[in-house]
């Protein structure tokens, strides 16, 4: 039960709010904006329609996706959807079902890729321009004070220093997200190292661990990779393993060499490539170097920009590169 005074107060509050909204908003009308959007789409040359970019959970990929998305939206008039998924199986299923159109940065998942190409659901579009370097890294301070650790043959001498509460009486090797390509258990075993792989569980956990190790001068050895924005923030050093040779990683259980440098790939759904969408040709021509990707990623993480703003800023600063994708 509400007394009339209260109700009247409520009523007038609502009326006041509505009035305030009516008068305060000086912006344009919805229909004007709709028309503007239509014109832009028409100017961009037509009917791009929906464009679904798969987004994998690391910042470098976010940079790829929003740059492509920004250009597709602004220049081609596409309706871009960012479909956030774990890499590997889920992504290829999304390509097959039509929930996703492109993977912009495929690191490995050779088996899934080959299967998808074989059954005609996906197309391998080759390099996306960046090179993936996976390897064993230590924080910068450690490389400076104990440069010996940078050679794998000396690692056993320092196993005790790398020991943590999680690694028992062995040294700890910090593995990463379970979904990434990792052979560290095999490498450790085959090189006879006295280390135990402890999986951090994710990129966040790994980055936190390296940041903390650098700040507190803790001993840390772990799986990491380039390109990655964090290289711009804290120094890393790569540990030298027996060099990669063709085929030394063929049998996953017998790997005894460093990771191969990976040419990062673009993969698209067959149906999308055949659709004649202008976005398909954009994806085909699009490339991004390690430096460019790190730059955009740093906008997002170090400068705290939204992915959209970061992409827009980079596109504005690099008109020639963007031009090449559209030509």
């Amino acid at each position: 039960m509400l007394d009339p005074i209260k109700r009247r107060a409520g009523l007038s509050a609502l009326a006041a709010a509505a009035l305030l909204a009516l008068t305060a908003c000086g912006g344009g009308s919805v229909s004007e904006q709709t028309e503007a959007n239509e014109e832009q789409a028409a100017a961009a040359g037509g009917d791009c329609g929906e464009f679904n970019i798969l987004v994998h959970p690391w910042v470098g990929y976010t940079a790829d996706a929003y740059v492509v998305g920004h250009v597709a939206e602004e220049e081609l008039g596409c309706t871009v959807n960012y479909v956030e998924l774990k890499e590997g199986g889920p992504s290829y299923q999304a390509l097959a079902s039509g929930d996703g159109d492109v993977i912009l940065e495929e690191w490995s998942h050779q088996a899934e890729l080959e299967a998808a190409v074989a059954d005609g659901t996906a197309v391998d579009l080759g390099s996306m321009g960046a090179v993936g370097i996976i390897g064993w890294y230590v924080p910068g301070w450690l490389a400076e004070e104990h440069p010996e650790v940078l050679n794998w043959e000396n690692l056993n001498d320092f196993a005790d220093e790398f020991r943590t509460s999680e690694s028992g009486n062995q040294g700890q090797f910090l593995g990463s997200d379970p979904t990434y390509t990792q052979y560290d258990e095999a490498i450790i075993k085959n090189l006879g190292l006295n280390f135990k792989v402890v999986f951090s569980g994710g990129e966040t956990a790994t980055v936190e661990a390296f940041e903390k190790a650098q700040k507190n001068k803790e001993w840390l050895l772990g799986y990491f990779w380039e390109p990655h924005y964090i290289h711009a923030e804290i120094p890393f050093a790569r540990v030298e393993l027996p060099p990669y040779e063709e085929g030394c990683d063929k049998n996953k259980a017998e790997v005894d060499c460093d990771y191969a440098e990976t040419e990062l790939k673009k993969v698209a759904s067959k149906e999308f490539m055949d659709s004649g969408s202008p976005a398909a040709s954009l994806v085909e021509k699009w490339t991004l170097s390690n430096e460019d990707q790190n730059q955009i990623a740093a906008y997002i993480t170090a400068d705290g920009m939204s992915p959209e703003d970061a992409a827009a800023k980079w596109v504005e600063d690099n008109p020639d590169k963007v031009e090449a994708w559209l030509g």
Binding site: K86, E87, G88, G89, P90, Q93, E112, E166, P178, T179, V198, F199, S200, G201, G202, A205
Partner: peptide, 17 residues
Amino acid sequence: VGAGALGYDVVYALAHA
């Protein structure tokens, strides 16, 4: 977050069909 065990198995399976 690095605890491994069953949680790791589940997360790993989510990515590797």
